Amino acid sequence: MDISEVAWNEPARAKILDDADRVLREAVRTVAQKNGISSDDAFAELNALLKDRFIDYQPGPDIRTYADAIAAGDFRDDAG
């Protein structure tokens, strides 16, 4: 077997992605509950909540998008 053949199977890959999305949603939900938070503060809080949950975490533009939406009060949480 060649080392390039070592990879997660599709069910495991899907679970990893689902788990990562859940962690992201939990962080966004937590920060979005803070009224009057600035985009920069929301961005910092999101990164603080996420940095230790992922290997080699680096914030991307999607985190800034969520921080901006939180600061603008554009988030709704239909799931509760």
Rank of each mutant, 00 (worst) to 15 (best):
A27I: 02
A27Q: 01
A27H: 03
V28M: 00
R29Q: 12
T30N: 07
V31L: 05
V31K: 02
A32R: 01
A32N: 02
A32V: 02
A32E: 02
Q33N: 13
Q33C: 00
K34A: 11
K34F: 02
K34H: 11
K34S: 09
N35L: 07
N35T: 13
G36L: 02
I37K: 13
I37F: 04
I37D: 09
S39I: 09
D40P: 10
D40C: 09
D40G: 09
D40R: 15
D41W: 14
A42Y: 05
F43W: 15
F43P: 06
A44F: 12
E45H: 09
N47Q: 14
N47C: 15
N47T: 12
A48I: 05
A48M: 13
L49I: 05
L49V: 07
L50E: 02
L50G: 02
K51A: 09
K51M: 09
K51H: 14
D52R: 07
D52G: 13
R53Q: 07
F54L: 00
I55V: 11
I55D: 12
D56Q: 12
D56V: 01
Y57Q: 06
Q58S: 08
P59V: 02
P59F: 03
G60K: 06
G60T: 04
G60P: 05
G60F: 03
P61N: 12
P61I: 03
D62A: 05
R64C: 03
R64D: 02
R64A: 07
T65L: 12
T65Q: 12
T65C: 03
D68G: 05
A69S: 06
I70C: 02
I70S: 01
A71K: 01
A71G: 06
A72F: 04
A72K: 06
G73F: 04
D74K: 15
D74T: 08
D74I: 05
D74F: 11
D74V: 04
F75N: 04
F75P: 00
R76P: 10
R76H: 08
D77Q: 13
D78K: 11
A79S: 12
A79V: 06
